[in-house]
Design a protein around this nucleic acid. Structure first.
Lengths: 116, 116
DNA sequence: AAGAAATATAGCTATATCGATATATAGCGG
DNA sequence: CCGCTATATATCGATATAGCTATATTTCTT
């Protein structure tokens, strides 16, 4: 009854927890918007606040969380804090999820993306 | 100041929400364990309960959530409910995250995987 | 048909975390 | 030096959800 086995190392409990934490970080629309906004280059907090349409405090908080787990990096230039994507693999990730979702949604009547 | 742009279509708000939901599903260790357990083939609920070391009710609930969003599929054989991975892309996803995490963790002293 | 086995669901409490508001910190210009 | 701008942090109420316990449902067995 054990079918097409893949090798796949065994994760420790801490390993599962760590992976879960990463995914949890990607499980909020506002954080996805922030990361999406950083896809075309680094931005300061103000720009991101305008982009995602939330409060400055909120955006700052989420940026902090993203940074804690190493998803974005911060550099300060004078007054401003400039954030950037730390790991480009992130977008491969999101594209995979989008592809998977789109496949399922096009069979319904939902739209994932903007435009005609 | 706008750097290396990627084309990248614009996601709608619903799109972001949908992607977030997918990631949210992957943000619990027990669900990751379940999916990991299904990697080497379909299993019934009892087998998964033994694998993840949680209560039957809890595992069943999480299987329900995974199924709601189309991550696993269920087939019934007599008494049993047999669950399987619905979308293999899922593992590409997890491998990416693991790779990204491992890179960061090996610079610390944590271990993501079992073994010598 | 009665009971056992396998799975699903319901109700509950505890906890995490989101967004909002208010405030603190740090650099810049006059 | 003082206010202004940019960002970060603290506190708080509301909400979502994990896991627990108990129970319902379905199918198999005898």
């Amino acid at each position: 009854m054990a079918g097409n086995a893949q090798p796949s190392r065994n994760l420790t409990d801490d390993g599962f927890a760590a992976v879960a934490r990463q995914f949890r970080l990607l499980s909020e629309p506002i954080r996805l918007k922030i990361l999406h906004g950083l896809q075309d280059g680094a931005k300061n907090v103000g720009a991101l606040v305008a982009l995602v349409g939330s409060s400055q405090a909120n955006v700052s908080k989420h940026l902090g969380l993203l940074r804690e787990e190493g998803m974005v990096s911060r550099s300060k230039r004078g007054n401003e804090a400039i954030y950037a994507i730390a790991d480009p693999r992130l977008f491969t990730l999101c594209k995979l999820v989008c592809a998977s979702i789109e496949e399922r949604l096009t069979s319904r009547h939902d739209r994932l993306f903007d435009g005609p």
